[in-house]
Design a protein around this nucleic acid. Structure first.
Length: 255
DNA sequence: ATGGCGCCACATTGGCGA
């Protein structure tokens, strides 16, 4: 089973690239973030036409998440239970016996902003819910845009980014609390190229200069991690015309 | 250096992302 996560930065604009990605990589499950579409505008027919079922939770302009799957999606759940949130950032569904949790963690803007406090509260709520979810679903994958670079090696310029949003200690501590639930960062299960990133600023030729951060992740529960054979960042999608600023991340599991 | 790019909307400028 091949799992993927991709922040598309507007599915309306990026639908052709998504269809190319599906055709080229043939993922079994894809978690999308920043669809930026209300549900009635979701391109359901176009995606179903190429062999995927879809579940989505969107809103106008900002946020929005979706799960695509070749196999049926069951027990679909939007949002974190018990956590009031207008922003559409979480979607969970079961595929076969695997629980797929698609997340778009808040950006936080800057460490001294209200949005940063929202990010930390959000992460606490997510972690509390996942602890329960893991007892119900030992086979669980947590995929998406985390807006956290877990370590300095995930940052092109750790000195410039030190204590800045996406790299600060409170955010990295929240990431470690997710790991402490028994989740593995699939990317780090394998030897990887130096300076591997999943997001590059559109500005100042960020991609060409590889000025990036690794903030998109696929975390796997122990039961899934032992079956993971590959995990990579698909930089090819970032090279296309009108790319998303994020590259897809992919993890492959044996059945 | 608070610039730069890309997307969106009560749009032709401002908010937001990361």
């Amino acid at each position: 089973m091949k799992l993927a996560a991709w922040n598309v930065n507007s599915l309306k604009v990026r639908l052709p690239q998504l269809l190319d990605f599906l055709a080229m990589r043939q993922p079994d499950v894809v978690c999308l973030q920043e669809t930026k579409l209300e549900n009635h505008n979701f391109p359901k027919a176009e995606i179903e036409a190429v062999g995927y079922q879809v579940a989505f939770s969107g809103q106008k302009t900002y946020n929005g998440v979706a799960i695509l799957s070749k196999k049926p999606l069951v027990d679909v759940q939007a949002g974190i239970p018990g956590f009031e949130d207008e922003q559409k950032r979480v979607l969970a569904a079961t595929v076969n016996d695997t629980r797929i949790v698609c997340i778009y963690i808040p950006n936080g803007q800057s460490v001294d902003s209200d949005k940063f406090q929202y990010k930390l509260k959000w992460l606490t709520a997510l972690t509390g819910w996942l602890k329960d979810e893991l007892t119900r679903h030992p086979r669980l994958a947590l995929l998406g845009d985390y807006n956290i670079a877990p370590e300095d090696r995930d940052v092109h310029d750790p000195v410039a980014w030190k204590d800045q949003v996406l790299c600060s200690e409170p955010e990295r501590d929240a990431f470690r609390k997710l790991i402490a639930l028994g989740l593995k960062d699939s990317f780090r299960l394998f030897e990887q190229p130096e300076e591997s990133y999943s997001w590059w600023d559109y500005r100042m030729m960020g991609f060409r200069r590889n000025h990036g951060l690794r903030i998109d992740h696929i975390l796997l529960s122990e039961a899934l991690a032992t079956h993971c054979t590959e995990s990579l960042i698909d930089r090819d999608m970032r090279k296309l015309e009108r790319p998303s600023d994020h590259a897809p991340v992919i993890a492959t599991l044996t059945d």
